[in-house]
Design a binder for these strands. Structure first.
Length: 340
RNA sequence: UCUUCCGUCA
């Protein structure tokens, strides 16, 4: 099982994680030279559950869980923690909580899975409450715990509490990982404390695209478009996220022209636009009455088979309507699945 | 070889 798990892990981190399930099936029917069949072990199931969580395959996850329990891995801590994470990802928070509470095996990772799960699902207050419980039970938080509670502060726009956590992190001399620094940065930005964000940003010796994008968004949101743009230009590398951030910043500031010119620049740099890019650019077209670009985007969407969901559909309808082509607007409107 | 973390949209 050891070598199978290694391959399984590789596949899970690849571009085609769903292949992992095929390998798992093979694993179940595999019989080795001596005629001994292979058993998935307690490392196999967490891997599979994680992949289910990532792909939101709730049904399949429950099936795999059934296998794990049948093979008596129902008391394995890694399986439990993976299960908590899986349930949280499927939005089954109550069940995740139940598994956690009824679990006879519980460690820091279990707490982290639950806290971060609640925080990511937008239930900040509950995340913080669980954190309090954790401290009552005298479990020491680590930097991953802190990411969860800082994220909760971001949602609540609770700058005061966020600062307290930042202080805690410093006092306990916790490892300031990049994700944690990014989470703090995001907290300061969303709470409107750009000064603190800037200081932290400048002190970070290692920065990722997330770090830069967080700052770009921060300046843009407060209307400092030129500062945002300078940061954007200074970025050592850019994937679709920063491009989207900058484009949408221009759109929100009613600077449709700059938005579309960035859109062109982005393509020149060979960055693949996605659905978010399209929505922003369509808004820009609406602002400018740029029907030609709008039609071009519409074709692009069709050519690349980007799914016409409500958001994208609405943006298209809006673009056609505002650019004066009501007939086309109606036509697209009728094509939108599950309208609201 | 196992579990937990960050940024963009009408």
């Amino acid at each position: 099982a050891f070598s199978w798990n290694i391959v399984l892990r590789g596949i899970s981190e690849s571009h085609y994680p769903s292949e992992a399930f095929l390998l798992y099936k093979e694993m179940l029917i595999f019989v080795n030279f001596s005629g001994v069949s292979l058993r998935p072990d307690n490392y196999t199931f967490p891997l599979l559950l994680k992949t289910c969580a990532k792909l939101l395959l709730c049904e399949l996850g429950h099936q795999i869980l059934g296998h794990a329990f049948k093979m008596n891995y129902d008391r394995d801590i890694f399986v439990h923690n993976a299960l908590i994470h899986f349930l949280v990802s499927c939005g089954e928070l109550e069940d995740a909580r139940k598994v956690f509470e009824e679990s006879c095996v519980r460690d820091l990772v279990s707490w982290n899975s639950l806290i971060n799960g609640y925080a990511k699902s937008g239930r900040a207050m509950e995340a913080l409450r669980i954190y309090e419980e954790m401290k009552m039970e005298e479990v020491d938080p680590d930097e991953i715990t802190m990411i969860g509670v800082v994220t909760a502060c971001t949602q609540l726009e609770d700058l005061k509490l966020g600062r307290e956590f930042h202080q805690d992190i410093r006092c306990r001399a916790m490892n300031m990982s990049i994700p944690l620094a990014n989470a703090l940065l995001d907290m300061y930005v969303k709470c409107g404390d750009l000064e603190e964000a800037k200081e932290l940003f400048e002190r970070m010796e290692e920065k990722t695209m997330v770090t830069w994008t967080t700052m770009v968004v921060g300046y843009a949101k407060l209307g400092h478009l030129n500062v945002a743009r300078k940061l954007f230009n200074a970025m050592p590398e850019k994937d679709v996220f920063p491009w989207n951030a900058m484009i949408s910043a221009y759109v929100q500031a009613q600077h449709g022209k700059e938005a579309l010119s960035l859109f062109h620049e982005m393509q020149a740099m060979k960055v693949e636009p996605d659905e978010v890019t399209m929505v922003s650019c369509l808004s820009a077209c609406s602002q400018l009455g740029a029907l030609d670009v709008g039609i071009w985007i519409h074709r692009y969407i069709e050519k690349h088979n980007l799914s016409l969901n409500v958001v994208l559909g609405t943006a298209l309808v809006d673009m056609y309507a505002k650019c004066g082509n009501i007939g086309k607007a109606f036509q697209v409107f009728r094509e939108i699945p599950c309208r609201n």
